[in-house]
Amino acid sequence: MESLNPLPARPSRAWFRAWLGATCASAGLGVLAAEPDLPGSADPPDFARFPGAWIVAYSAPDAVRDYEFITGPVDKIRRDVRIDNSLRLSGTLTRVTWQAPNGTRLADAVAHYRGLALAAGGRLVFECSGPDCGRSTVWANHVFRVPVLAAPNRTQHFLAMAVPSGDGARLLATIYVVQRGNRRVYAHVDTFAPDPGAVVEFDRNRDLAQVLARHGHAVLEGVTPGRLGRLPPEALATLQAIASSLAAFADQPLHVVCHLGGSAPMDTLLARSTACAEEAAAKLSESGISALAFGAGPLLPREDAPLERVELVAPERLRRR
């Protein structure tokens, strides 16, 4: 009779781990970690580890007064860390970092943790991948303070999510997954429970029509172009959601202005930002909003707004000021 798990002539360590995991799973014993966890650590609720992973950094639940829940990319200009989109809240923070088994693909680890959050009823607030997330060294050393998370910018993925907890309250989760230069994959999860009564508001475009009518221009929150000028799916969904609030402007054209920075030549940045503006205008037009596209590249910076942004301008309102 043939064995269900035949032993090769010279079994490798990777083969043995795979064989052991399959054998344990078939026996109902669960998946074993390849290495022991950090003493005293544990997986947070709703975020079971990637199969075979083990905990390499851990911060037990602790009360914090000024937690920054980041909902955008991060950067560092000279010595100053730049975080344009975030919420500051008081509550209880838990941090866990896992190392995945050798051979794990970055995309598989991302899909695992995203799937856990969505299965728990989570809502995606922000997601980015590669250079669109900013600098990995800032995430690792400044945001999470776990140096092992530093990786090439092109092999990083970040998600910010709001997840219902067991008692009906809202739990905020940030998920950061990287593949380092040595091909090892690490995943980090912050779970944050805001204090009771804390106001957690992600619909920052709720006053968009009023701001646009009063000032003649408004930055669209949650609509951030990537480095190549493309709008991610969540940005397009935000544009579709806010279109209904712009009914008061149905009889006057709005201008969609896309701002985009970077180290590419100026002509390239202008072309990319124009494509971004056209994509945003087309999405608004699907809902009956007359929108004209304009790509500004990096030429219209503002001290009070991110460099990469999409802005609506109502010229008739500007003339009334």
Rank of each mutant, 00 (worst) to 15 (best):
D62A: 14
G121K: 01
A109Y: 06
M1L: 13
S26F: 14
R10K: 07
A193S: 12
N141T: 09
S244L: 12
D132K: 02
P298H: 11
C276W: 03
R309I: 03
Q210M: 05
R184K: 14
N205S: 13
P147V: 09
N205V: 13
A14K: 12
F202W: 06
L171R: 12
D108Q: 13
H259N: 11
L300Y: 10
L7Y: 11
S244K: 14
L4A: 10
G21P: 00
L254A: 09
G295E: 04
W19L: 07
R17C: 15
L20D: 13
P44D: 13
I55G: 01
R123F: 00
S86Y: 15
F158W: 07
A111K: 03
F202E: 00
A150V: 12
T268V: 13
V64R: 12
S86R: 15
D46S: 12
D207W: 06
V313S: 01
A277H: 00
A187I: 13
G72D: 02
A282G: 05
F249G: 09
D203L: 08
T137A: 07
A247G: 13
P301S: 09
S26L: 15
G297L: 06
V185T: 15
A33R: 15
E303N: 14
E2T: 04
T155H: 08
R309H: 03
A282V: 00
A275R: 08
V199D: 11
P232Q: 06
A271C: 07
A235I: 04
L254W: 07
A14D: 12
